[in-house]
Simulated scan of single mutants.
Amino acid sequence: MLIKQRFVLDTSAFTDVELRNKLGDGDLTKTIENMVDLIAKARTKLNISCHMPPVTYKELIDYISLYDCPEEIKTRLDTWIVKKTPNRYETKIPSQIFYEYVRDMRERINKGMKIAEEMIWEAATESLVMKSRGHERQKIEVNTIGEAIREFRKKYRSALRKGTLDSAPDLDVLLLAKELDAGVVAADTGIKSWGERLGLRFLDATSFPKMIQEYLKYYR
């Protein structure tokens, strides 16, 4: 009997753009079909099980519903993905990790505030210049304020969200992996960064199917 291996999958383990290009020729439905085939073979032949927290699984189903994926895909996912809520009360996380997370978020908030201040000054200055040149209010709002808001959102999102845990599904993935002593599969840099801090095995979304395919070459 092969040693049991467990992996906890993030939504990005199915939806990552690079994964789609490599595994499904850019098509989401084809990518998920190929992933499910590999997961089924891994479970039946290699004693590898793939898990998702319910909140993360719902996020995946909601996502593929937007792309009108066939109902059969959802049925197959429901069959081969093990859904389990992490034990949030008993799973132990070192206090140092919590300390580092709070410090990281404080630094990101300060950075976000600085970005907001800079964008306000830029938009206000440009608006005054345009007004002094006789531009109409509507043009100022569209060309200056509207563009400033779009640029602010892009910079703010990058400052506060990139490379950290910014949602309940992300956190549940790590908690479940910690509880099950499982590997984590994702294309999310925040999950990777904090998963490694927790001492969890991490596989990039594009590496996981390659690993399964390599294992299957030697299956007898």
Rank of each mutant, 00 (worst) to 15 (best):
G183Q: 09
T144F: 00
T15W: 01
L128D: 13
R88F: 15
K83W: 04
E18A: 14
E71G: 13
K92Q: 15
D204M: 07
K111G: 05
E141T: 09
L19D: 00
D25V: 10
A123I: 02
S65W: 10
L198H: 07
A148L: 08
S49H: 09
L165Q: 06
T91A: 07
A186S: 12
A123R: 01
L60K: 04
T189G: 05
K74G: 02
L23V: 10
K74D: 03
I120Y: 10
R6Y: 06
P94K: 08
K162L: 05
S132A: 14
I3E: 14
E214H: 14
Y63K: 10
L77Y: 02
I39F: 07
Q138L: 03
K30Q: 12
R220Y: 15
I149C: 09
E179Q: 14
Y219N: 10
A187G: 15
T91Q: 12
R108A: 04
L200A: 07
I81W: 03
K92T: 11
E71D: 11
E118N: 12
Y99K: 12
A168I: 13
V17P: 01
I120N: 11
L200D: 11
P169G: 12
L23E: 01
L176W: 09
A124L: 04
I73R: 02
G146H: 15
E141Y: 06
T15L: 00
W121V: 13
L19T: 00
T56E: 12
M130Q: 11
K192P: 02
N34E: 04
K30Y: 09
L160I: 11
L198Q: 02
I81P: 10
A40R: 06
S132K: 13
E59P: 06
L198Y: 05
H51N: 01
K139P: 00
F152A: 07
A40E: 09
A116D: 11
I93S: 12
P70V: 03
L160W: 02
E90D: 14
T164P: 03
M1Q: 15
A42S: 14
W80F: 15
S65Y: 09
K58H: 05
T75Q: 07
Y63M: 10
